[in-house]
Design a protein around this nucleic acid. Structure first.
Lengths: 226, 226
DNA sequence: CGACGAGTTGACGAAACTCAAGAGTCGTGG
DNA sequence: CCACGACTCTTGAGTTTCGTCAACTCGTCG
């Protein structure tokens, strides 16, 4: 694994508090594996034996309902792992995962981690930290879904992906709009209409590039009482 | 703490895999504390120094939005703990908690747990298991919120609280209907109307008691394609 | 008895979904 | 080089669902 990839993996909650020695021991000489777009990594109910860390590209976590309809739970990007807790505990996962772009994913051997889990407190704390971050994210998603209207959820998404809080900004959307729509709990049509409504707040969109005139305006939209 | 209370606490994910010795060491001689209804236990942003375990009664976990509106994230009942991960990691919690009935809650000292976390792998694994269960619950809630209509969410709630899958059943609702409504993401009015619609599926309601003629009928409602 | 809170019901409106058609992009192949 | 199809996104029209506001019922408790 080259230095750039290593740096990305080391930014994850699971590895960022470990020493180089600990890290080397856990990851060993494993390399990220390249997956094409649309590749099913695992399905809910399976017992997974590796902890996946996204090095590049995007992975969609979703649940399949009895009638075959699926719901996006989360979209995971570079420097993030997923299903750490279930894998470490040896439980079947409750979600399915598929790549939604070309992606390189490091598969960390679960057994090696599990054995360290029992002897090295840092590893256990790291695992807990990962889970904690996932919990926060889910709580945040749940809150947004329950309280915000479609345009506001879109505004929130833009604020989150831009990472700036003032002045003008420009982002390229990381993946398809229909995926974003599903992620934040709406149809593609509603997303499109919602974006159109945000034009009144200085948001223009050209293909997959979104320009925001003044981030302050977007934040006001989110924080104003109504 | 009497035997009955101890049994309840020992059923939690955090303690159910520990030996009696480990358990005694962690919990010590602490007793559940009695809280009246409507008591704020902590607020989001606070660093909490004890892990709360509900012995009896109900606690509402919620998030307060900037404009003062709050959203119920989860309602926690007997034999369940909450905010374990954040407390163990020494992070500020991302949620607030209040009692929604009279409640007895055991407050387990965080420092004692934290020190064991570093030396005793079982404790670390227990903490991870707790977090994992919370993750599952949140994912399940998110899925239901995104995919199910109001009547179906209510049906799902009934199925979950009844615990039976066939024949007739009767449950007393554990707390106010408006609370349930908020928990499953709807207004009290919609809950009421939704319950009325379920009458066509053999669900009758008298005050806070719900009678289901045939659980199979409810399950069919949830699983049929439409 | 009366006041209060929780729950129900009705009327209305807004928000978002569905279905369907059209516009723009991109890659492929003739 | 252009034409075609595949795909994504957008837009339009109609419908449904759900939230809001308000009135009313019914227990509970002072």
């Amino acid at each position: 694994m080259d230095a750039a990839d290593t740096a990305i993996v080391r930014r994850t909650m699971l590895f960022n508090r470990l020493t180089d020695a600990q890290f080397a021991e856990l990851v060993g000489s494993s390399h990220p594996h390249a997956y094409p777009k649309g590749c099913l990594l695992f399905q809910q109910g399976e017992v997974v034996e590796t902890i996946p860390i996204v090095v590049s590209g995007w992975v969609r976590l979703f649940r399949v309902h009895v009638d075959g309809v699926d719901t996006t739970v989360r979209i995971v990007g570079p420097a993030h792992g997923f299903v750490e807790a279930a894998v470490l505990l040896g439980r079947p996962t409750d979600i399915s995962a598929e790549t939604v772009s070309e992606a390189r994913i490091l598969m960390v051997d679960a057994d090696r981690l599990r054995s360290r889990l029992k002897t090295d407190a840092d590893v256990a704390i790291s695992a807990l930290a990962s889970a904690s971050v996932h919990l926060r994210n889910l709580v945040a998603d749940l809150e947004k879904l329950k309280t915000l209207s479609v345009p506001r959820r879109i505004a929130h998404f833009i604020v989150d992906t831009v990472g700036k809080t003032e002045g003008p900004a420009e982002v390229r959307l990381p993946y398809e709009k229909s995926l974003i729509a599903g992620h934040i709990g709406m149809t593609a049509e509603s997303f499109s209409r919602g974006l159109a409504k945000l034009r009144a707040h200085g948001v223009s969109t050209l293909r997959d590039v979104i320009r925001v005139e003044r981030m302050e305006a977007l934040l006001e939209l989110l924080y104003e009482t109504d």
